[in-house]
Simulated assay, not measured.
Amino acid sequence: MIKRTFWLLFGLLSLLLGIVGVFLPLLPTTPFVLLSAYCFSKSSKRLHLWLLNHKLFGSLISDWEKHGVIRTKTKCIATASMLILVSYPLFFLPIIIWVKLTVIITILSVLIFIWTRPSSPIDV
């Protein structure tokens, strides 16, 4: 019972971070939503099915769970939104250099992860 509660709370927290990540470029949505799907698969069949059938996240989770795939369209949207949303602050706001470097390293790490995943089940 304690394990299920842990997985449920961790899944809810992860889903919250994923939703926030839709609006903040430093919090990538995809990994958090995938993590919440995993947590819900360990704790709540109902929430796991809800995510799988979700209009926005459902196909993303199904592709990942079945094939380890992130579709090219999703990769392009993620890349564009991250680059667009961090470009202005990095180039035009007076931010300490170590913060800028941290942001750049984070964004590059996420982009490397995303673009090294297969784009279709055929690539797997």
Rank of each mutant, 00 (worst) to 15 (best):
K45G: 12
L12K: 11
T102I: 14
V20R: 05
G21I: 03
I70M: 08
F91V: 13
D123I: 09
D123G: 10
W64L: 08
T79R: 07
T102K: 12
I107N: 06
L24I: 09
P25I: 01
A78L: 12
V33H: 00
T79V: 12
R4N: 15
K3W: 01
I61Y: 00
L24M: 13
L83P: 03
L52I: 08
S62H: 09
L16H: 10
T30K: 05
R117N: 14
I61V: 13
W64Q: 08
F40D: 01
R4M: 14
I19H: 05
K45F: 08
T30L: 10
L24N: 04
I70S: 06
K66A: 11
D63Q: 09
T72Y: 09
P89F: 07
P121M: 00
L51E: 05
K3F: 00
P94Q: 07
T116A: 09
L27Y: 07
S36A: 02
I122P: 14
L34N: 03
F10T: 15
I114S: 11
L34F: 04
A80C: 14
L56C: 03
S120L: 13
P94G: 05
K55M: 10
V22K: 02
I105M: 14
I84V: 13
S41P: 02
M82W: 03
I122T: 15
S59V: 04
L13W: 10
R117F: 12
Y38M: 01
N53Q: 07
T106C: 14
I114E: 09
S41Y: 04
G68P: 01
L24S: 02
L60P: 03
K75G: 03
M1D: 13
L34M: 06
F10I: 15
V103Y: 01
F92A: 12
L16Y: 11
L108M: 14
F10L: 15
V103N: 00
L15K: 02
T79Q: 11
L13M: 14
L47H: 04
S36R: 05
M82I: 08
Y88C: 09
K42E: 03
L101M: 11
V33S: 06
L8M: 14
